[in-house]
Write a protein that binds this DNA or RNA. Structure first.
Lengths: 169, 169
DNA sequence: CCCATATTGTAAGTATACTGTCAATCATGA
DNA sequence: TCATGATTGACAGTATACTTACAATATGGG
């Protein structure tokens, strides 16, 4: 319970949940990029591809709610995916502000082919733990992320994804 | 066990450890920044301050090993801390390549004053879980980060911090 | 119908987080 | 000692991740 700098040790950092989350995120990205190096896709780009595949014709704002990425961040991600010809952006006829997102044939192919590598990466992240501990960690993390949803600047709004279906294209 | 895009659902993202780690990291940063807004310090800058306080006269390369931040990233962090007059950079007399890092009086004061806010932030991150679950999660995370240390691009090398003491200043 | 308000995409600015590369410097072995 | 290789800090380039601001467009109430 250090309260003066004179008493601070590195444990004040090493044992802090925030530090462990940051460290684990670094490690997870590193493993993902390594396993998926053949596809030149980052974790964020992969998640965006999955969401666009699952919700064809979604717009950028709704996409940001579905994967909980910041709208501004997502703009750049979409640009890169478009420049790699993995997705297409078409203006909506109903709302001139909106651009609808679709996978290209190439994008769908990449998504199909990358899956085994992604699975391998996800397994590797938890590999060092005993199987029972992996389940425990995942369960607690899922619970914590869900309960802390509103604490983040960009809360996950999975249900937002369905709205564009009602209004159709 | 989806292997074709046609079978992919958003759960392929939501239940992946990598996604949960990213999400939790987003949330943790958000909570930290909110609790510590009065001090205008990011989590990374806080960790650097603690490490420089704990290892006065450390150089940037060793600092990067002690907090597991990339050397290039750390260069910018150090610049910002210096421009806020929280740390000082002095050339070493023994090795003309090296610049030694020290807290300023102002830096030490900020570090002392921010501690309660940091503690609050760390508590808030785990708040939604039952106390027993918090302990379990922290224990598993600590274990996993440690066992995956070498998988990250910038492994933690806590012991590196001691080297500069032997060679003194 | 028109005005206030909200939404959408975009852009600029800051801060991590990594990849390279480079020059200056240091340390070592032949 | 001197040439080789390693280390240090700096820089450029890419990719998240956030902030605020803004113009174009939509929507709703009066």
């Amino acid at each position: 319970m250090p309260s003066k700098p004179s008493h601070i040790t590195m444990d004040a950092v090493y044992t802090a949940p925030g530090y462990l989350f940051r460290r684990m995120q670094q490690i997870a990205v590193s493993i993902f990029v390594e396993e998926c190096s053949a596809f030149d896709l980052t974790p964020v780009q992969y998640a965006a591809l999955v969401a666009i595949h699952t919700h064809p014709g979604i717009d950028a704002t709704r996409l940001s709610a579905v994967i909980a990425f910041d709208r501004s961040t997502l703009g750049n991600v979409i640009e890169r995916l478009e420049s790699k010809a993995l997705i297409e952006r078409k203006p909506s006829r109903e709302d001139k502000r909106v651009k609808l997102l679709h996978l290209t044939k190439s994008g769908a192919a990449v998504l199909r082919d990358i899956m085994p590598s992604v699975e391998r990466a996800q397994l590797r992240m938890l590999q060092p733990l005993k199987p029972a501990d992996r389940k425990t960690l995942l369960a607690l993390l899922t619970q914590l992320v869900d309960l802390n949803n509103e604490a983040s600047r960009v809360p996950l709004r999975a249900e937002d994804a369905l709205e564009h279906l009602g209004k159709s294209n």
